[in-house]
Amino acid sequence: MKNELKIIFLLLSLGLWIQPVAASAKMNVVTTTSDLAALVQEIGGDDVSVKGICRGNQDPHYLEPKPSYTLMLNRADLLIMVGAQIEIGWLPVLLTQSRNPNIQPGSLGHLNASQGLRLLEIPEGPVDRSQGDIHPEGNPHYWLDPHNGLIIAENISRKLSELDPEHAPSYHLRLKDFQKRLQKKIPQWKKAISHLAGKKIVTHHKTFTYLADWTGIIISDVIENKPGIPPSPSHIHALMNEIQRDKISLILVDNQNDPKPAQKLGKETGAKVLVLPSSVGGTEDVKTYLDLLDHLVIQLMEAL
């Protein structure tokens, strides 16, 4: 009995010793993707330290919950996620393991960047996996529409200001500056590829739905018609006919996916295959959000 009391006393004193480690001056932000990290960098500047989990050339659907990611979450003050179930295969287990109550869903340090966005391709009617690995909340690749970029930036700015009111004026200034730059770019981009509006193309995965939506390009069909499941030979055959019939001259593949089926289709039909990054960091020269859209527009402009 005496021993037990001793131990309890020891533990109590130990508890007093272990003070929470003094938080570093900068807010520690972790985002699930490189695109969100780039946007946080725009708004947070030098006032935050930001790390993205999924690199630009990795597919955010199929990440593995590595222990190093658990550590990142463990030390985060704010977690920003894409949402719409793109991270469902790996984020929940990391959140549980993180032991960080501040970033759990529903906590202040947890932000779903898709707040207030109009998501496309929300499945209607009954949903089951005969349709592949579909997202019941809609297509999650929404950052490829710069209009959405404006809202995501605003969501980020509001959250940063809420958690770090001291720097709120700087966040606001950077937000306004970023939105101004982006808004100036949008008409320029639209003009540069105005000749593509109304044109039909084929894409590999439903990655470029939002890009097509704001540029007016029509995605006539997708190679991977059931998300996450390789296309059947009969679908490829039907696509081939479709490409020839509608004189479709461009096939887009994001660089996280296997370009082979697209290349084969291109070879058979003469359509041009364009492999494009869908995220910041997807290729070497794409370092910011504006770089990404610039890159996509220039590539599209030159392709058609």
Binding site: N112, G116, R118, L119, I122, E137, G138, H147, I151
Partner: peptide, 15 residues
């Protein structure tokens, strides 16, 4: 919300 036609607030999860 920036100009965009038919903007609907859908973030309140379809569930």
């Amino acid at each position: 919300i920036p100009e965009k036609e038919n903007q609907v607030l859908l973030w309140k999860v379809p569930q």
